[in-house]
Design a protein around this nucleic acid. Structure first.
Length: 413
DNA sequence: TCTGGGGTCCTAGGACCC
DNA sequence: TCTGGGGTCCTAGGACCC
């Protein structure tokens, strides 16, 4: 049934940077880069003008400025990107209800059942490109193929503003000489391991005996072989039909300076706990496992420890206490560069009133605090001890679980 | 002046229970 | 006191994606 699908992958080009250039005409045609925040940060996205000068995603700001001195740094505004993404997804849904967002700037569309209405996948692709350009001034690269894996591959082949179709009869020819690392799902480590087995191209991967791959890679062995053959039966799952719930909620922050003062560390932990807690409450989930991450000043050494509790929690102070409980069992070896807290083992929050008056009061206070923050922005109202470090708070990047409706479904048991 | 932050899935090994 | 095996939960860590 899956062999005759037509899947589109749409990838917005230099999304954050392009949105900023549209919002501020003085940035158009210039080398700009979007960063997440202040302090020790890296390039999130850069305009094509900047890329031409050698600016790359993940570069430290100073490094990017060295290769491109005229680079204009813009601090990202997630609200703008989310709004634009939501509007663009509305355009997609004019052509098919089967739209699966992969991230804020990438989506798959299964247009198999729309072809009779619109004529061809190319027609749909051209219309989508024209509407996104007309409405938002943004360009995108579109790939058309029989499945998600190949559609993503196709959209990567021509940037910016591309349109590439891989027809079923062309699949083996396209894959024959393609490096295995070009496949979505084959990262650096896997590519290197494959190369060590003398497998360099997708063609070679597709012809490799499955037993050999399974011996080396375990459960993903068979999938790797299929990927090498360009086979991918995974369906396009519309985000409003996706009943998976979010699995974890976490925040981490690289500090402006390495710190070792326990008071300062604890203050940051409280801040992170509040960020995690408020988002968990917004999602309507609570969790049983709290994880703490520490990266030391040397950058390379880090650790993560977790504690699973008896009860499900989502109150910030409970998360904070759990994180502190983990930390106090550890002796820090160096000053700290990054701190992170994550809440997992989640379930949807049942709206049950706490037994004790004090707990009920706390719940009411938290709700009031969340409501104010929802209206006026994160961390407007927060715990007293957070305030001195407030400049380190706020949203930096958009989580992959983000969905155009606002949040990912949280229907779990 | 090095190197962000948000997730997902998978595996191995140990504890514990029946 | 012995023996074995299956299942589940937990921690830790790695690979991958944007």
């Amino acid at each position: 049934m899956n062999e005759h699908r037509t899947v589109i992958h749409c990838d917005l080009n230099a999304f954050f940077a392009s949105v900023e250039q549209q919002a501020d005409p003085s940035l158009r045609g210039k080398a700009i880069a979007v960063v997440g925040g202040h302090g020790r940060t890296v390039i999130t996205t850069s305009s094509y003008e900047a890329r031409a000068k050698g600016v790359k995603t993940g570069m430290a700001v100073w490094e990017a400025k060295r290769v491109c001195p005229e680079l204009i740094i813009v601090v990202g505004d997630n609200k703008k990107y989310q709004w634009t993404c939501t509007k663009i997804n509305e355009i997609f849904r004019d052509y098919t209800p089967e739209v699966e967002p992969f991230s804020i700037d990438e989506s798959w569309l299964d247009v198999t059942h729309s072809l009779s209405i619109f004529g061809s996948a190319e027609t749909i692709a051209y219309r989508i490109k024209a509407r996104i350009l007309h409405s938002f001034g943004l360009r995108c690269s579109i790939g058309i193929a029989p499945n998600k894996l190949l559609a993503k591959l196709a959209s990567d082949m021509q940037k910016p503003d591309g349109l590439v179709r891989i027809l079923p009869e062309d699949v083996s020819r396209v894959l024959e000489g393609l490096p295995v690392g070009d496949l979505c799902g084959v990262g650096k480590k896997t590519a290197k391991a494959l190369n060590m087995m003398s497998i360099y191209s997708c063609g070679e991967l597709g012809r490799c005996e499955v037993e050999r791959l399974t011996r080396k890679f375990g459960i993903i062995g068979p999938r790797l072989k299929l990927m090498g053959q360009g086979i991918d039966n995974s369906p396009v799952v519309a985000f409003d039909e996706d009943d998976d719930c979010v699995k974890s909620v976490g925040h981490s922050r690289t500090l402006d300076k390495d710190i070792s003062d326990p008071v300062e560390i604890n203050r940051f932990l409280l801040q992170l706990a509040e960020m995690v807690g408020s988002r968990a409450r917004k999602y309507g989930v609570s969790g049983k496992t709290v994880s703490l991450y520490v990266r030391y000043a040397d950058f390379f050494s880090s650790w993560g420890k977790q504690a699973t509790l008896k009860n499900y929690i989502n109150q910030s102070d409970n998360i904070y206490k759990a994180a502190l409980g983990i930390l106090c069992k550890v002796e820090l070896e160096q000053s700290v560069r990054l701190l992170g807290i994550s809440l997992s083992n989640l379930k949807t929050q049942d709206e049950q009133l706490p037994l004790f008056v004090e707990d009920r009061k706390k719940l009411e206070a938290t709700k009031a605090m969340d409501a104010v923050n929802a209206r006026f922005g994160n961390m407007v109202v927060t715990f007293g001890s957070l305030l001195p470090g407030k400049e380190n708070a706020g949203n930096h990047v958009i989580p992959p679980s983000w969905r155009p409706d606002g949040i990912k479904n949280v229907k779990c048991t």
